[in-house]
Design a protein around this nucleic acid. Structure first.
Length: 405
RNA sequence: GGGCAGGUACCGAAGCGGUCAAACGGGGCAGACUGUAAAUCUGCUGGGGUAUCCCUUCGGAGGUUCGAAUCCUUCCCUGCCCA
C-alpha cells in the first residue's frame, strides 16, 4: 500500500529546505508501513487572511505529496489562534478577529486549499475545538512547560524586544497554542514555511511534555513576492492569488525580477527532476532566455490552476498587449447610464471606476497614460461623446469599452 | 505608581508658530527605453475647481493666537528607566 521508505523520504525531501530529525521520520515511516497505518501530517493555516496565494501553495503541494503517499493530511484551521494573531514576520501585532469571522474565513481557505489538496486523506479541524475549552488552569499548566528565555529565542520576539517594539504578553502564547494543536491531533509530522521553524519546534517540546512522541518537521521555502524583496503576502500586495484569473496570474509572474525565476519555477510548480534539471541548466548556460523562462514558468503556473488552454490564451494576450501594444482579445463593455452623452473625459473615467478621483485621472492624462480609441489623450479637459462605443485605455493594462445606455 | 522619550500622509522618517498638502527614503502609478507588468532613467503621488481659490489631513478632545503639525490643558496609545 505504501511506497518503500527510501522512496518516500526522497519525495518528502524534494524541494524542502529542512527535514528533521531525519532519522525519526525514517523510523516513523518504517513503522507506518509495517503497521499499515498512515502518518498524521499536520499543516496549520491562518484564517485571518483566507486568500491563498502561490506562496501558500508551496507547503500545500508538499502536503499533497504526503497524501499521495497514502498519509493523512490534517489541516488545522486556526480559528482560535487567529484571535491572538501570530506576530510572525511582521513587527506589528495583527488585529485579532472574532471566532465567527475566522470560521467564515476558514471555509474560504478550505475551498481554495482543495484546489491543491486531495479531498481524500484529508481531515479538517478547527483548533477552537480544543483551545476554546481550556480553562485558566490548563493554560497555566501549558505555560509552565516553557520558559521566557526559550520563548525569547524566537527571532522576531528578540528583535522586537531589542528594538523597543511592543510585544503583548498574549503573543507569547501563540507558539504554545499552536503546539497544543500538535498535542490534540497527535501529529507525526508538521509542515510549515521556514518562518515557522520556531513554532514547530515548540510543538515538539510540548508534545514531549504531554507524553507524546514529538513530531517530525518539514520546512518549505518561503516564496518571495513579486517585488523580489519581501515574502509574498496579501497585505504587501506582492502576491499571485490562486484565484487570480489567468491573465493576471500570467502578467504578475512576468513581472518578477529575473533572479526569482528559478525559485518560482521550482517551488510554485514542483516540476519533476528531469524538467527542473533542464530548466536550471538552460538558465545557467544562457540557452534559455530569461523572458522565455518566465513565460514557461508563468504558463506552467497558470495551467496548474486554470488548465493548459487558458494558460496559452493568457500568453497570447500578454504578447498582444505588452509586446505589440495591441488591444486584448476580450475587453469588457460598460454601459453608463448618464443624462448627457457628451461629458468631460475625466468624469467618465471616475464614473467607470477606472480612476479613483478626478485628480488622479487628470494626472494620468497629463502623463500620457490615457488613450481613447487608440490615440493618446493630451487634453485634460477633453469631452467625450459616448453615444457610440469608445475604447478607453487607462494606464498600462486597463482596457474598457464604454457606451451610454 | 514615579521619571524620561515618543505618536506626522500607504510605510519609514524630517519639520517644532506663518513661506506646510508638509523635506527625504521606500512603496505605488505613469512616461521613455527594452527582452517583460525585469532592469535603468524621468516625472507624478490628499480631494474639489480649466483661474496665485476652497475643503480635509500631522494620536483624540478642548484652548491660546490675526495665524498651530508646531505653544498650553486634558485624555488615549507606545517604548525605556525606576518601583
Amino acid at each position: 500500500m505504501f511506497p518503500p521508505v527510501n522512496e518516500q523520504m526522497d519525495i518528502i525531501k524534494r524541494f524542502a529546505v529542512e527535514v528533521f530529525p531525519e532519522d525519526e521520520l525514517f523510523e516513523k515511516i518504517e513503522k507506518s508501513i509495517k503497521q499499515n497505518k498512515p502518518l498524521r501530517v499536520k499543516l496549520g493555516c491562518d484564517p485571518s487572511k483566507p486568500d491563498l496565494h502561490i506562496g501558500h501553495s508551496v507547503v500545500l503541494r508538499k502536503l499533497r505529496q504526503f497524501q499521495d503517499l497514502g498519509h493523512k493530511a490534517i489541516l488545522i484551521v486556526g480559528d482560535f489562534t487567529a484571535m491572538i494573531g501570530d506576530p510572525s514576520g511582521k513587527n506589528k501585532t495583527r488585529p485579532s478577529l472574532t471566532l465567527e469571522e475566522t470560521r467564515i474565513n476558514g471555509r474560504t481557505y478550505l475551498e481554495q486549499a482543495t484546489k491543491i489538496l486531495s479531498k481524500e486523506n484529508l481531515e479538517v479541524r478547527f483548533n477552537s475545538e480544543w483551545l476554546n475549552n481550556m480553562n485558566f488552569a490548563d493554560v497555566i499548566k501549558l505555560a509552565s512547560k516553557y520558559t521566557v528565555a526559550q520563548i525569547l529565542e524566537r527571532d522576531d520576539f528578540s528583535l522586537r524586544y531589542r528594538q523597543g517594539m511592543p510585544i503583548s504578553l498574549h503573543e507569547f502564547l501563540y507558539p504554545l497554542a499552536q503546539a497544543m494543536d500538535s498535542v490534540a491531533i497527535e501529529a507525526d509530522v508538521e509542515l510549515g514555511g521556514t518562518d515557522q521553524k520556531f513554532n514547530l519546534i515548540v510543538g515538539r517540546e510540548i508534545q514531549k511534555a504531554y507524553g507524546l512522541e514529538p513530531q517530525s518537521i518539514v520546512l518549505m521555502p518561503i516564496l518571495e513576492g513579486l517585488d523580489g524583496k519581501e515574502k509574498m503576502s496579501k497585505s504587501l500586495g506582492n502576491y499571485v492569488a490562486i484565484t487570480d484569473d489567468p491573465k493576471d496570474m500570467f502578467g504578475k509572474i512576468m513581472s518578477i525580477p529575473d533572479e526569482l525565476i528559478l525559485k518560482y519555477y521550482l517551488y510554485a510548480t514542483f516540476p519533476n527532476p528531469l524538467e527542473s534539471e533542464k530548466f536550471e541548466e538552460g538558465l545557467k548556460s544562457g540557452l534559455l532566455h530569461p523572458k522565455e523562462a518566465k513565460i514557461q514558468t508563468a504558463k506552467k503556473i497558470v495551467a496548474l490552476y486554470h488548465g493548459e488552454e487558458e494558460a496559452e490564451k493568457a500568453h497570447q494576450d500578454f504578447e498582444k498587449v505588452f509586446s505589440k501594444k495591441e488591444v486584448p482579445d476580450e475587453v469588457e463593455t460598460l454601459f453608463l447610464n448618464v443624462a448627457n452623452k457628451v461629458q468631460p473625459l475625466v468624469d467618465v473615467l471616475v464614473a467607470t471606476g477606472l480612476a479613483p478621483s478626478k485628480k488622479e485621472a487628470k494626472r494620468l492624462i497629463e502623463q500620457g497614460g490615457v488613450y481613447v480609441d487608440g490615440s493618446r489623450v493630451c487634453d485634460v479637459y477633453m469631452n467625450l461623446d459616448i453615444s457610440t462605443r469608445r475604447l478607453i485605455k487607462y494606464g498600462k493594462r486597463k482596457f474598457l469599452y464604454i457606451q451610454s445606455g
